[in-house]
């Protein structure tokens, strides 16, 4: 009989858990940001609940199926989905330490995100021009709060991405810059998950008779 327990084949390259020490900083940072994102999603769930409760209270004003254009929603969805994909490719470039690739995919992500925000703003402007302002009805108040809050998050993400590219330019892909970019990627993917629920609940269920 052998006194020393042999490590399992899969664990052969690792120290045992008792000797591994604390997790690396990038894991702790990303996990903390993950918890923040979940709390952000809890906040969005309250806005979703408010919207679902108030969606019928149009106060004889315009309702969703009169206001929403499915074409612009489809284009917005495509912009955000593809920008989530290019954000993933940016993460791969960062991990492979390819600075040019990082800039390129960041620029594509930024452009698609900016296109999304521009489309959403023009949609809002069109609604307000037709008298569908947030003050018009409880439905519109909750609509502008919910969709506008997501739009604000996307805008904040764009500002964050621009600052991160500045940091990559000035400091290079150092460990702390990489950690921030990792958090940005998490943020961007989470926004896309929220948008999936937004276009389903607000636009598709609202338009469906």
């Amino acid at each position: 009989m052998n006194d020393i327990a042999l490590p399992l084949p899969a664990m052969a390259d690792k120290a045992p858990a008792s000797e591994a020490g604390p997790a690396a900083k990038r894991i702790v940072v990303a996990f903390g940001f993950w918890v923040f994102l979940l709390s952000d999603i809890v906040m969005f769930s309250a806005l979703f609940a408010a919207y679902a409760v108030l969606v019928r209270n149009t106060a004889d004003g315009p309702s969703g199926d009169q206001l929403f254009s499915q074409t612009s929603v489809a284009v917005e969805t495509a912009c955000l989905l593809v920008s989530s994909y290019t954000c993933g490719l940016m993460s791969l470039s960062i991990e492979a330490r390819r600075q040019l690739g990082t800039y390129f995919w960041a620029a594509v992500t930024f452009a698609l995100g900016a296109a999304f925000v521009a489309l959403e703003l023009s949609e809002f402007a069109g609604m307000i021009a037709r008298g569908a302002t947030p003050q018009r009805s409880a439905f519109l108040s909750s609509f502008f709060t919910l969709v506008g809050c997501h739009g604000l998050h996307v805008t904040a993400g764009l500002v964050w991405l621009a600052f991160m590219m500045l940091q990559v330019n000035l400091r290079g892909l150092r460990d702390n810059v990489k950690r921030r970019l990792q958090c940005f990627a998490l943020f961007w993917h989470a926004l896309d998950i929220i948008w999936v629920w937004l276009f389903t609940v607000v636009y598709l269920m609202g338009v469906h008779p």
Partner: peptide
């Protein structure tokens, strides 16, 4: 300090790029 620890960060691309047991390349996963 080992870099292949017992925890993975959410959204970790390192696992896609550098793990020997990763079967699919990162681009393919996305």
């Amino acid at each position: 300090m080992t870099d292949t620890p017992y925890d993975l960060a959410p959204g970790d691309t390192k696992a896609l790029v550098s793990r020997p047991e990763a079967k699919l390349s990162g681009v393919l996963v996305y």
